[in-house]
């Protein structure tokens, strides 16, 4: 799964290891990155990691949660791989994840949702790709107390922002042989903002006559995903609905420990798992590295390392099919045991 037409990748020499910025993250982030690195070693994946700082450690050191040097380095290299980070609560700090997306204008959050072997859910043969607009909507973080006990938040929707995410969804569908794009909105209530999003999606759809286009109100979409998930293919949503529906879909897949994600802009991309940093589980050797591994697999595709991507996904599928699973999906394997099992599959 790739978005070749949208991202101008920084050209790197084919003879050298690909450079990728690495954010090790907070909480369980570093141990999940260790697992991915171990699997890459077993798969002979050669990446020249360029470590950059962001997250809780920066705040504790009195720096911005995402320093300017980190933004500049990611912009220069064009690709970053990021483990989950913690947003300090109640300290007036902004989210490091949203800061990266906003400062680098990573407008397309892409979340593939697919059934995995050995992971039993009521949703057989699930295969969706969610395109969440990543920079606008209520996440513009424009909020005020306008009178005692009265809060206003601005929902920012633009034609430009709506058009580029709609185009990303349709281009992806075209490049990857997908048949249908569904725009999800609440234009029956927010007739102006969501009405604009829907109208722009309808306009973009006219440029892709070979792809079916539907639209759906977000509440109905949630119900339909649970009852008729096979009717859906590519979904395109404004930021807030995209956030909610993609977690719903991750649950349908088997949980957040399995769900990969990528954020694409015009000139760079950041690959990050959907789940949080789970600080309570840090150091317990318990968490599931699947989401971050599948995220890294999206990155390998983006870097053109298709054989390695296939090898790693194959080893993961084989491991899960053998019933080797972490606690979150009904297994008893530790992070290390699960990682080692994938490495063994790669070596065999």
């Amino acid at each position: 799964m790739e978005l070749n037409s949208l991202v101008n990748r920084t050209k790197q020499s084919k003879n050298m290891a690909q450079k990728v910025c690495l954010i090790r993250g907070d909480g369980t982030g570093p141990e999940l990155v260790d697992a991915v690195e171990k699997i890459y070693q077993a798969a002979n994946v050669s990446i020249d990691w360029v470590e950059v700082e962001a997250g809780l450690k920066c705040v504790e050191a009195g720096k911005p949660i995402v320093p300017d040097e980190t933004i500049e380095k990611i912009r220069e290299i064009g690709v970053a791989f990021k483990a989950p980070m913690t947003t300090p609560i109640g300290k007036g700090s902004v989210s490091p994840n949203v800061t990266l997306r906003k400062r680098l204008d990573l407008y397309a959050c892409v979340r593939p949702v697919k059934s995995l072997p050995g992971v039993v859910t009521p949703f057989k043969d699930l295969d969706l790709v969610i395109f969440r607009e990543n920079t606008e909507d209520l996440y513009a973080q424009i909020e005020y107390i306008v009178a005692p006990g009265v809060a206003h938040t601005i929902k920012l929707i633009t034609e430009e922002g709506s058009r580029r995410i709609a185009k990303a969804a349709f281009e992806f569908a075209k490049e990857n042989g997908r048949k249908r794009v569904t725009a999800v909105h609440k234009a029956n209530i927010m007739k102006i903002a969501d009405g604009m999003f829907l109208r722009v999606c309808q306009e973009v759809a006219k440029d892709y006559p070979d792809i079916e286009f539907y639209d759906n109100i977000v509440d109905n979409q949630c119900m339909q995903l649970i009852t008729k998930w096979k009717d859906y293919d590519v979904l395109v949503l404004p930021n807030l609905y995209g956030d909610i529906v993609s977690d719903l879909a991750a649950g349908m897949m088997g949980g957040l420990g399995l769900a990969p994600g990528a954020n694409y802009g015009t000139n760079c991309a950041i690959f990050e798992a959907v789940h949080g940093s789970a600080p309570r589980y840090a150091g317990l050797n318990k968490v599931n590295p699947t989401a971050l591994l599948l995220t890294s697999s999206l990155m390998l595709g983006h870097l053109g390392m298709h054989d390695k991507k296939k090898d790693i996904e194959g080893a993961l599928d084989a491991t899960l099919a053998k019933g080797i699973k972490t606690y979150d999906i009904g297994g008893s394997a530790t992070t290390t045991e699960f990682t080692d099992a994938i490495c063994s599959e790669l070596k065999s």
Partner: peptide
């Protein structure tokens, strides 16, 4: 612009919409 600080510098590189807070 679109909720992202563009002044004082450094300004992120993205296409501005026609209204600044």
């Amino acid at each position: 612009n679109r909720g992202t600080k563009v002044f004082p510098p450094p300004a992120p590189k993205f296409k501005f919409i026609g209204i600044f807070r």
